[in-house]
Design a binder for these strands. Structure first.
Lengths: 222, 222
DNA sequence: AAGAAACGAGAGCAGTGCTCTTGACAAAGA
DNA sequence: TCTTTGTCAAGAGCACTGCTCTCGTTTCTT
């Protein structure tokens, strides 16, 4: 590796790092090539030697974000008890949520609304499958575990809040209602933001089935 | 109502209409006051007589979008069989999804990532509760209905696709897995994009309970 | 009818992405 | 070792953005 190639890799990394910093505190539209260049003590045009356009820089950051959330999920899965599929699921879920809360703008970058005019290049779909693989693996393990049928009660603090929301319903049922809500919302967002199109094709029927499942839980509550 | 007030209301409506049109085909960041003004045959500065800033115009559009999706939900609920809570739920779900697919950028405006630097003014929270009210009402009705316990099978087309995704699992279980996935994703997005903070306070415990519920379904499958 | 308020138009400021040209420097070939 | 070749930072410049200010003009209110 020549000195030039090394310098190039280093500068590319610095550009991505400061760009990520800017996005972290202002979101995607706050990403300004000139501002990044200013922070690095170079002139804006010099930046085009490393990224052909603003979108290209954004794409690189999106790929990194997909990779980051995928790694978070994999790590959480590994750190959970291998035999307990439920523990694995919850570990992954909490880890992904933690990452999302810590990096809200990066989460929005990959799971929020796509940047207008931006079309995901092929480079992004491979890192995107990383977390999908983890989730599918864990869910398969859960499906193969046979556990007694019971519907868990929410913990005391949650139960109190749920009682405040719907005083005339048992908290467990309200919790299932919010789960149904989250599920519906999540299904729409997954479909709309393009994380489903390569998996499910008859999305009308699929969504209808999901809606049915969502309220089955509510009915199973008591 | 004076002629001036009438003209003002009319022009305000035209501005919002063309702004909505621009957003529909380019997203929120494609909303340019100058472009809107150009389309209306006026100069950009004149537009500031009607909206004090770009964000104010965006806020008006967000309020309208919340109102639109709320009305869609209410209308769907009314058009369903009043006695069949499950039918009401599915009608609302399909209607909201339809609206989201028809108006993706407006959906992203209210349920996708918030525009950077944009903080939702108080005006937006009241229209935002409209759909929440509908969903809670329907879910309450579902909770009060007593129905036999059974886990519905996915329709044939969906079952085939699910079998392709996970060949070694029963399609019904794969469907429940994707429902769990959508639920987790939806819960994170709801929390992150600020549609939950005025409802749930101990979000850590709440999210943990949701995660548990999500996989209960998977376990209940066979 | 006179004053006040609202209005549209225009110029101008600071910022943006991006392109093109210029000169300096390093890496390889003769 | 000298020369060519390609890469690099820098600067000027274009078209665009949100926004502010000023200027006459129109409309409503008193």
């Amino acid at each position: 590796m020549t000195a030039r190639a090394r310098a190039r890799a280093e500068i590319t990394g610095e550009i991505k790092a400061t760009a990520r910093r800017h996005i972290a505190e202002g979101g995607a539209t706050a990403l300004s090539l000139r501002a990044v260049a200013r922070d690095l003590g170079m002139v804006s045009s010099a930046l085009y030697r490393y990224f052909p356009s603003r979108d290209a820089l954004l794409t690189a950051l999106i790929v990194d974000a997909f990779d980051a959330v995928g790694e978070v999920a994999e790590k959480a899965d590994r750190s959970a008890s291998p035999g307990d599929a439920g523990d694995r699921w919850r570990a992954v879920g909490h880890a992904v949520r933690r990452w999302a809360l810590d990096n809200p703008h990066e989460y929005a970058l990959v799971y929020g609304s796509p940047v207008p005019g931006y079309v995901a290049p092929p480079d992004t779909i491979e890192p995107a499958t990383r977390i999908t693989t983890v989730l599918m693996t864990v869910l398969s393990a859960i499906a193969e575990e046979s556990v007694p049928r019971f519907m868990p009660e929410p913990p005391a603090s949650t139960a109190a809040e749920l009682a405040a929301i719907a005083p005339d319903l048992p908290p467990a049922q309200t919790a299932l209602g919010m789960a149904a809500w989250a599920q519906m919302f999540g299904a729409i967002s997954l479909e709309l933001f393009g994380h489903l199109e390569s998996v499910v094709y008859d999305r009308d029927a699929f969504f209808d089935h999901l809606l049915t499942l969502a309220i089955m839980e509510v009915r199973l509550a008591p």
